[in-house]
């Protein structure tokens, strides 16, 4: 049976309206509600289902971030993860934390914890980088099954159905392997009350990037963060003739 490591990121909740900081260095996060990255919820759900199906022996949730990342880890524990590792990264270092850093951390932890499968969300809804799974696989030199919409056990390893442009691709990988969860992989559960209570007592270990020997100096520089262009207001026209006239006027027909 395998041990599964799941990466969970704390991001601005997707029901919250995101605001760009006036100095364009990033987005406002102070006092803004955060939640687990929705794709990571799918990753946790998949790992927990593997455990329920007795394909996995243990599920370890990992989050890199400030103290509040522990709330995200508690959510993963309440969903069914067995224990958690909080890689504490705060302040300026957190602001410039990039997928490469996270991948190095996950790779190191996978080795330390003797994980057989690493699952992360295909992307985080804040930076939309879509890099962590791929980089983790590269660093570990493990096979990868990204954009997974179905994961099944096969004799030698896993059969992974991937969402690709224009259809589905089915691949087989050996273990150990890295997976990234796509939207249709599963529908994540809500943490139930008894499990929320139990999660409070599950073990959570705190480590630093330094403990893991990962250098956090930034490799990418954010030049500027801007609001998307505002959509122009529409206009209601009284009839088809006016519509056609307007379209001609605008050179659209």
């Amino acid at each position: 049976m395998s041990r599964v490591l799941v990466g969970v990121k704390r991001v601005i909740d997707y029901a919250v309206k995101v605001r760009v900081k006036p100095d364009k260095t990033g987005v406002v996060t102070d006092g803004v509600k955060h939640s687990m990255n929705p794709f990571d919820e799918i990753a946790v759900e998949e790992a927990v289902r593997m455990k329920e199906k007795k394909l996995a022996s243990e599920v370890i949730a990992v989050s890199c971030g400030p103290t509040q990342a522990q709330e995200t880890l508690r959510t993963a524990l309440a969903m069914g993860a067995d224990r958690a590792i909080h890689v504490e990264i705060a302040g300026a270092e957190y602001e410039t934390l990039q997928p490469l850093h996270v991948a190095k951390i996950l790779a190191k932890l996978s080795q330390d914890e003797k994980a057989d499968i690493v699952i992360v969300g295909k992307q985080a809804i804040d930076d939309d980088s879509n890099q962590t799974a791929q980089m983790t696989a590269a660093i570990l030199d493990w096979p990868q099954g990204t954009f997974a919409s179905k994961v099944e056990k096969s004799d030698a390893g896993l059969t992974v159905t991937r969402e690709i442009d224009g259809g589905l691709e089915v691949i087989k990988t050996k273990l150990p392997a890295v997976l990234s969860a796509d939207l249709r992989l599963n529908e994540p559960r809500y943490a139930t009350l008894p499990n929320i209570m139990k999660a409070k007592k599950k073990p959570m270990k705190k480590v630093s990037a330094k403990d893991l020997g990962v250098d956090l100096s930034p490799r990418i520089k954010v030049v500027s963060v801007e609001d998307p262009p505002v959509r122009q207001a529409g206009a209601i026209v009284p009839d088809v003739d006016t519509l056609v006239a307007k379209l001609k006027e605008g050179g659209h027909v």
Binding site: D13, Y14, A15, K33, S35, A191, T192, L193, P194
Partner: peptide, 15 residues
């Protein structure tokens, strides 16, 4: 009195 349930303070889940 409560048999089962869930509780959240995440805006998207509350919605």
């Amino acid at each position: 009195v409560i048999v089962d349930g869930t509780v959240t303070s995440e805006p998207a889940k509350m919605k």
